[in-house]
Amino acid sequence: MRPHDILMLDAAGLFCKPGGFHIDPVRPVNRAIVTHGHSDHARPGHGAVLATPETLDIMRLRYGNDFAGSVQAISYGQEIKLGDVSIVLHPAGHVLGSAQIAVTHGGVRIVASGDYKDVCDPTCAPFEVVPCDVFITEATFGLPVFLHGDPASEVGKLLASVALFPERAHLVGAYSLGKTQRVIALLREAGYDAPIYLHGAMDKVTRYYQSRGIALGDLRPVRGMKKADLAGAVTLAPPSATTDLWTRRFPDPVRAFASGWMRVRARARQRGIELPLVISDHADWTGLTRIIAATGAGEIWVTHGQEDALVRWCMTKGLVARPLALVGYGDEDGEGDTVGFSGGESNS
C-alpha cells in the first residue's frame, strides 16, 4: 500500500479513501476527524464528527449543539476501525483536546499531527511522539529564525512592564482558545495572583478550561469595570480587539501580543505592538525538526505555513519530503482562530 493511496488531497482537504473520512476538512463532508477546536480546523456542517471529547465540547461552545449530524468521542489511545483502517488519537500538545491522528492501513502508518508543540503547557496533555512511516507536519513556524525560547521569561517581561508602568493598563492580545488560558497559567506560575481581566469573547471557553480542572485563579470580566480600576491590571483580549476602539476603556494601554510571530520585530511593529511576547502554541523550528526526526518517518508531508524551508531541511537530512498545498488553514497570523466564541463586546 502506497501512502498516497491511503491519504490524498481533494477539494475539502486530506481524504482517507479506504476509511471514508476527511481530516480537518475545510468544507462540509460526510465524515470528519477533527484534530482540535481552532476554527480553521474544526468547521461546522459535517455529517459526522469524530474527535476527542474536549474538541467536541469546544465545537459545541463555538457553534452550538447541532454543529454536526452526529458525533463520536474518541479518547487518546483508544483504537477505532473505519473499514480496514485503524485510527488512534494521540495528544498533540497544542490546545486542550488537541490530537494527532495516526492512520494505519496495510502495514503503513501515517500520522497527521494537525497543529502541535512539544513544550510544556500546563493547560493540555503533552505531545506524544508516535513512530510512523509518513509524518504530516504543519510548518507555521517553519523557518530557522523562529525560536520561541522560554515562555516564563516572556511573562517576566510583561510583569516587569506592569511594575514600571503601574498607572497604565496592560492589554494582552491572545487567541481565545488555548493561548489565553496558557498565558493565564504562566502568569500564575510566575506568582502573579491579582485578578486577571477577560474580554467577553474568551469568557466561555476559559470557564470550560476551569471546568476541566485547570486552575487559573481569579478571573473577572472586563466589562463594567471603571477605567481607573484597570490601571496596573492585566487584561486578555482577542488580538483584533487590542487595536480597535474597544481599547479606549483602558488607561493608556500597553499593547502586548502573545504569539510566536512576535519573534520577528517587523511583525510586531506592523501591528503596533509595544510589548511583544514570544509565546506560541506551535512548535518552533527546533521543535519541528526534533519531532520530525523522532518519529522515525522516512517521508514527510509539509502542510500549512513556511513549507519551503522545512522541506529543504528534510532533504538535507535525507528524508523524502513534499509540500502539501493545503489551503484554508491559518490566517496571516497562522494561529487561525478567526471565528470567535459568542459573547464578544461591542465597541460602544
Binding site: 529564525v145 520585530r265 513556511q306 529543504r312
Partner: peptide, 17 residues
C-alpha cells in the same frame, strides 16, 4: 545552510536580526 538563510532573511528583512 545558505538556502535556509536566504529564506529567513527574505522573511525577516533585517540582516542583524
Amino acid at each position: 545552510d545558505p538556502v535556509l538563510f536566504a529564506l529567513s532573511y527574505d522573511y525577516v528583512g533585517d540582516l542583524s536580526e
